[in-house]
């Protein structure tokens, strides 16, 4: 069984098996930076997931803020759709400033 199948087994937010549900952990290392994915923990609810994430992932002041998200709530794009999703942007080089030639004498642009 893949992790996807396993995660989809239960209804939203519902515990089915004997194993505690999985939560993905995100840490903001300091103000001004976005939260970044670091791993996951098992917990029965989001409060204990936060506590576990704090114990497992921040033993050396790695962060000042934590997010935990039930893994089954994450919808991810399929790697097979990578081309379809992201390649159309490839030939649109006119979306980048370097596409345009501006005379040297023009300043501040």
């Amino acid at each position: 069984m893949t992790s996807k199948e396993r995660q989809m087994k239960g209804k939203k937010g519902q515990i089915t098996g004997k194993e505690w549900p999985l939560y993905e952990v995100f840490i903001r290392s300091k103000n001004g930076l976005a939260h970044k994915h670091v791993g996951s923990v098992h917990a029965t609810d989001s409060t204990t997931a936060l506590e576990a994430a704090r114990d497992v992932y921040t033993r050396r002041q790695e962060g000042i803020s934590l997010w935990v998200v039930p893994s089954r709530e994450i919808t991810a794009s399929d790697p097979e759709d990578e081309g379809m999703l992201f390649e159309p942007a490839k030939d649109k080089i006119y979306r980048h400033p370097t596409f345009y030639k501006i005379p040297k004498d023009v300043e501040y642009m």
């Binding site: 893949t2 199948e5 923990v41």
Partner: peptide
């Protein structure tokens, strides 16, 4: 946690 991403459960 990293191994679980391969589809095996922790248990």
């Amino acid at each position: 946690s990293a191994t679980e991403t391969l589809g095996i459960s922790r248990d």
